[in-house]
Design a binder for these strands. Structure first.
Lengths: 346, 346
DNA sequence: TTGTATGCGTTATCAT
DNA sequence: ATGATAACGCATACAA
């Protein structure tokens, strides 16, 4: 690897002069002619400043730690993309870590990131009970919460208003004539799922519709868990619900699959509304009606806040909540005009 | 941040003793009692070795650069997940970069990664013409190609046998009675798409089936491009094909959407087979018949090879090609027994 | 405008 | 078994 010294020797100047000549901020403090010579030789020799040494000296690495629950879940991609786009503008690079959405994995992950001296951390993986490690870490490096809030932490956060989103789902189902509704809930330890549950329940009550509450919630927001919970709903809910609010699109897909396994149709017998507007959900069968939260935008915003915090740690804590929106596709049937086509509750 | 020196002063020993005591490899060279004391104080003070300083001193950063074409495309997730899993075992962390699948972005991305002194690079973004930057970089840091090969580069690679995969697609369509087949091709600048095209064409010819070759290929392997190309096929192919081989699932989904926009049915009028077995494709309408390439496994393998290369740069170049497999779902109709249900070619 | 000196935090070598 | 010293490559305060 060619270093500052190599270039300096070749040009016949001191390494510090080379350093200055190649630093845009200090370049004008060096003689035009020498600067040109240095630039030429540096390019010729293929010099590239060692980011590690620079980081040690400057105290900043130019990296941002990202904590995601699960890279395998397709809804992570848009958020990551947004973050990467936001960082790229300023030359920061993301270091990505996973927790598998398991609470005990967060602490070691954060410690690794701190040891790496990332300039900031963006966490998409917060769960209730994560305050300890999160706040301990926040004392050493700026942390921004994205998509998943952690209530009471007082940390900067860029989230979607899940309470409102839950309400949107309830209102949509009820406006289409559904009176027997039920939730397929994600883990309540994730604040967003909790809020979706409350938002839905409150709105349903407010609209005079009672909902049966299944005795279980998903351990992870996955298709398999959606199947399992829908099984419970089909077995336990009397009368059978005509509509289901699944706390995310994966759970929704699992629920639909189980509805069919029971010989029923979605949406004719049981309507399903999901959450996230995950990529490809316009192409599922049926096309998924869902609540969109613009994960890409949230990711980009989180990145911008993280960068602002790096520039000025005194930046006031930003807590941004964006309103989600309803995306109507084909998984919710209209029960207002048409009589029930399904068999009576069995 | 608490440093070695802080701990040393507190314990009353020299920093180098602390360094040794905390380094598993050298810990036995320090007195049991002092070691215990050091460990205790270090934990108490919350000491965590600065990975930046360590990297500068040791010449290794413990990071791996990952180059992906596009984080937004859902098929990137499984590969990333596999890589992350493979790295995690050994404490390496991935630094992720994007090229947007644009050739000219590769060089700067690689240079950034080299400047960061990543210990190895895994590229999933290779395109024809990338040999220059890739080989130049390979002279400075180990590079492993994953999923996308670069023929003639001689770089280690972990790929799926796309030629075989193309053949699998052709055989499947033809076995189901299709005699008018056509390809919706991905950019031929990506070797894998090229091989899929050739593998399909050769197998089709070998089975005595002629395929019309549309005059265009996708600029990017996206849903929109799938629509555009399918439009061209519908407008141009006479007689109208009964089956389409889309070079990936996104193109397939776009093609299906365009088939329907033309008032035709998939698979009854036009069958479509995709490629990748992207997440959620079991739930699309129709469920996508596709070729699975186990991206997660490929990613993990690539990570393992990268780590082996770091341990010993003389590790012989591994070029691993795994056989893809056909996943039969619902997007290919059987034309053998039933007469054509579609209207005659118009 | 350029050179000198120093230190970022760690680890490896050498000496004790 | 421990301490002293130097160096990884760069950037900056200071001197000239």
């Amino acid at each position: 690897m060619v270093t500052l010294r190599d270039v300096a020797e070749r040009v016949g100047v001191h390494p510090s002069t080379v350093s200055r000549a190649l630093d845009p901020a200090a370049a004008r403090r060096v003689n035009e002619a020498t600067r040109l010579r240095i630039e030429h030789v540096a390019a010729e020799m293929g010099f590239q400043a060692d980011a590690v040494a620079r980081a040690l000296r400057r105290g900043r690495t130019g990296t941002i730690g990202i904590v995601v629950p699960d890279l395998g879940n397709p809804y992570a991609a848009p958020a990551l993309r947004g973050i990467a786009a936001g960082l790229d503008d300023r030359g920061y690079l993301p270091i990505i870590t996973e927790t598998q959405d398991e609470g005990h994995r967060l602490r070691p992950v954060l410690e690794t990131l701190v040891a790496r001296r990332v300039d900031a951390i963006i966490s998409l993986a917060s769960r209730h009970g994560d305050s300890g490690p999160l706040l301990a870490t926040a004392a050493r490096v700026p942390i921004v919460l994205a998509i998943r809030d952690l209530p009471g932490s007082g940390l900067p956060a860029v989230i979607s208003d899940d309470h409102h989103g839950g309400g949107l789902a309830a209102a949509h189902l009820i406006a289409h004539g559904h009176r027997q509704v039920v939730q397929v809930r994600g883990p309540a330890a994730v604040e967003g799922f909790h809020r979706r549950a409350v938002g839905f329940r409150e709105r349903a009550q407010q609209l005079g519709v009672h909902q049966w509450e299944p005795p279980a919630e998903a351990v992870l927001p996955t298709i398999d868990e959606g199947r399992r919970l829908m099984r419970i709903v089909l077995d336990g809910a009397r009368p059978r619900p005509t509509a289901v609010f699944a706390h995310n699109d994966l759970l929704a897909l699992g629920a639909i699959s189980e509805v069919r396994a029971a010989g029923l149709d979605c949406p004719a017998d049981i309507s399903v509304i999901g959450y996230n507007d995950t990529p490809l959900t316009p192409y599922t069968d049926p096309p998924l009606t869902t609540i969109a939260l613009a994960a890409g935008d949230l990711g980009r915003l989180a990145a911008e806040i993280a960068l602002a915090l790096i520039d000025d740690p005194e930046t006031p804590v930003a807590r941004i909540s964006r309103a989600p929106s309803l995306v109507v596709r084909g998984s919710v049937a209209d029960r207002r005009a048409v009589p029930r086509v399904s068999s009576p509750a069995n």
